[in-house]
Design a protein around this nucleic acid. Structure first.
Lengths: 168, 168
DNA sequence: AATCATTTTCAATATTTTTTGAAAATTTTA
DNA sequence: TAAAATTTTCAAAAAATATTGAAAATGATT
């Protein structure tokens, strides 16, 4: 496989993967493109490479910056804005996990807290099953939280790799 | 908050959460409804509770069965089919993780393997950055795999909770 | 085997999400 | 400060996705 071909494939796959994870296909493609670009790109570069409109590039880039996955880069002597993506995949993952936790897990857990205070007779089967589900999610959430923290740290932790293999 | 109100809220939140994770809103709602239902429900029950058509219920139930999250239940004396969802949230999570790994992570890693064999000069910056990205994803994927295995097992493993807290 | 009950399918429709592109806003240059 | 370059916005159009509902298929009962 040639490099140019492989790059196309990479971008397209990363985009498809994005849709499975609740991320806009184009946003994921822009991200992929920037990850494998040795140098920062500007809006026109991205438009040309992905065959999409200026407005589309602009919106998705903004979103990527919002997620902390892409940075604006100033190139001296250049008038246009350039963009580059974090290339260390660990940092990318860490960033995504942090954001999703903040945007999704935290609010969900807050809601579960409220729901666990629901009024009703605990001997009622309806109420019991509902509360059990809520409590289960709460416990799971706390654990998942620890787990994600662990994933983020495990890269740098020599001890952990050993433990992981051991338990597996 | 009253139970009926809380249930509605739960279903709606679980549905919204689903869309963030690449899951059809209705499918997530049906799942939520079944999780908090003390007894199995049939198609008509689900239609009534969620205000959706028969065809829609049918398709989403089938998908949930496909994911291993819902089971058909035979109720003796009843002619209709009934459905129930796994209520242990750990089993639910385990099942989802297993399925997503199989459907998404595994094929992605296979593709990365192919891409790592791309032809081209490794001194070329273009090629180098591309290969570094691919390699990074491969390493991350392997690690994430271990990690998911760990998450799945950690529920039953007394030792792990300690380690988790320790490292945090 | 005919009738009734239930489930499944799928073309048509509705809804949601994404994309476009031109106008407006902003920034830079002269 | 006017003109040129660039970025941003957002209403309208296009595309993708989800939903409906009625007809067909399947299964159960008499």
């Amino acid at each position: 496989m040639k490099v140019s071909e492989a790059k196309q494939q990479f971008i397209s796959t990363w985009g498809a993967m994005g849709t499975h994870w609740g991320i806009n296909r184009t946003m994921a493609q822009v991200h992929a493109l920037l990850m494998i670009s040795p140098d920062p790109l500007n809006q026109d570069d991205i438009m040309a490479q992905l065959n999409i409109s200026r407005g589309n590039v602009n919106m998705n880039i903004r979103e990527l910056i919002d997620w902390g996955l892409v940075d604006r880069v100033i190139i001296s002597g250049e008038r246009k804005e350039y963009f580059s993506a974090e290339k260390d995949i660990w940092k990318v993952a860490t960033q995504i996990i942090k954001e999703r936790k903040k945007r999704e897990l935290d609010p969900m857990m807050k809601l579960m807290d409220q729901m666990s205070k629901v009024e009703g007779d605990r001997n009622d089967k309806e109420v019991k099953v509902f509360l059990d589900t809520v409590t289960g999610i709460q416990k799971f959430g706390a654990h998942a939280d620890d787990m994600l923290g662990l994933l983020v740290k495990s890269d740098e932790n020599w001890f952990l790799s050993t433990v992981l293999k051991l338990i597996k």
